[in-house]
């Protein structure tokens, strides 16, 4: 096993995440894309913690923190979705203005 394989898998996940962010209009899918990117970063961290000149647990700890933080983020994101759903219940989604430059 070599570290390059793992970081390349992680790079592929980042690419998929960016693709999803650019293409998908649905907020839930956007959330998925962000989670995929965070996971790619975590995979990178763990790979580097295994293949590292210095024995250090910092990589695994960072990954643990990042997972906890992502959970906190998702909770707020889902609350925003529920709020949006309530606001747009009677309204057509098309009224949701597009991102203006």
């Amino acid at each position: 096993m070599n570290i390059t394989e793992f970081v390349i898998i992680s790079a592929i996940l980042v690419g998929i995440g960016i693709y999803g962010l650019v293409v998908k209009r649905n907020f839930i899918k956007t959330l998925f894309s962000i989670e995929i990117i965070v996971n790619a970063a975590n995979l990178n961290l763990i790979a580097f913690s295994k293949f590292n000149p210095i024995t250090s647990s910092a990589g695994q700890i960072t990954a643990l923190f990042s997972i906890a933080i992502a959970a906190a983020e998702v909770a707020v994101g889902l609350a925003l979705i529920i709020l949006a759903y309530r606001l747009y219940n009677d309204v057509d989604v098309k009224e949701f203005r597009r991102l203006r430059g």
Binding site: T4, V7, I8, A11, I12, V14, G15, I16, I18, Y19, G20, L21, V22, V23
Partner: peptide, 19 residues
């Protein structure tokens, strides 16, 4: 198409850099 190109180019750039 734009998204696919962007995603692919990120993969290729990162991959080349790591390799």
């Amino acid at each position: 198409v734009l998204g696919a190109i962007l995603g692919l180019s990120i993969i290729l750039a990162l991959g080349a850099l790591y390799l």
